[in-house]
């Protein structure tokens, strides 16, 4: 997937990102309400973890191949568009 995007790709440790985000949002809001100048980034740095073992960096050759595939894909979409009605 990193080969398609051309950017490093990594999965999260926690499965439920939105629920974790809700909890962090509550922590942020609670802290601010008590007059603390808490930066949300400080909270996410402490509690949001990426799973380093899943990290993939893009391979230059395969990214070049997928860049061509992307052009073909988007051209096909363009050409097919009128046929979808």
């Amino acid at each position: 997937m990193a080969d398609v995007f051309g950017v490093s790709v990594v999965a999260m440790v926690a499965g439920e990102a939105a629920a974790l985000g809700g909890a962090l949002h509550a922590a942020w809001c609670d802290s601010l309400s008590r007059g603390e100048k808490t930066d949300l980034v400080t909270l996410t740095n402490r509690s949001v973890a990426v799973s380093e073992s899943t990290r993939c960096a893009p391979d230059r050759n395969r990214h070049a191949l997928y860049s061509k595939a992307q052009v073909r894909y988007e051209r096909l979409c363009q050409v097919l568009r009128p046929t979808f009605g």
């Binding site: 990102a17 939105a18 985000g21 809700g22 509550a26 809001c29 609670d30």
Partner: peptide, 15 residues
């Protein structure tokens, strides 16, 4: 807290 939409909260939960 104010909370938010799932993508907005997903943004926080993924840093």
């Amino acid at each position: 807290s104010a909370g938010g939409g799932d993508n907005m909260m997903g943004a926080i939960g993924t840093g």
